[in-house]
């Protein structure tokens, strides 16, 4: 094998490894054929198990409710209502056991907690 073909082989291998790198990383960290990891949440005990909106809606859109509530209440001067972030604490007492789990899983760092103290 000439030097040129060795270099070409190394180049091809590097390109293919680069294309497969994310899969290799995740497979190495989690193990193949295992159920994909998912965030484990500590759900509130007691209560009626109902959030301010249905669960499916909250999973996708809670951030919109919070930003909207901020604009209405903090900037528009409306009265506190059930959509304000302070209301979340009534059921989800510990941020580290609820909010943070999904945020870490999905690689999201919301600004909320820069101002709002949620233990």
């Amino acid at each position: 094998m000439s030097r040129d073909s060795l270099a070409a082989a190394a180049l091809v291998a590097a390109l293919l490894a680069a294309a497969a790198a994310p899969t290799l990383y995740t497979a190495a960290a989690n193990g193949l054929f295992k159920k994909p990891p998912r965030p484990e949440l500590v759900l509130p005990k007691g209560g009626d198990g109902k959030c301010v909106e249905p669960t499916d809606y909250m999973r996708a859109n809670h951030m919109k409710l919070l930003v909207n509530a901020r604009d209405r209440i903090v900037r528009g001067g409306e009265k506190l209502d059930k959509y304000h972030i302070e209301g979340c604490k009534n059921c989800h007492a510990r941020r580290a056991e609820f909010c943070d789990r999904c945020h870490a899983y999905a690689g999201v760092k919301p600004e909320c907690f820069g101002c709002h103290y949620l233990p």
């Binding site: 989690n30 054929f33 159920k35 994909p36 499916d56 999973r59 996708a60 899983y105 999905a106």
Partner: peptide, 21 residues
């Protein structure tokens, strides 16, 4: 149209780990 990002990631990881959900 916001989707449930956690559900999407779980689906994608399932495919990558050869254990689809």
């Amino acid at each position: 149209f916001h989707a449930d990002v956690v559900g999407i990631k779980e689906f994608l990881l399932g495919l990558m780990l050869l254990s689809p959900v």
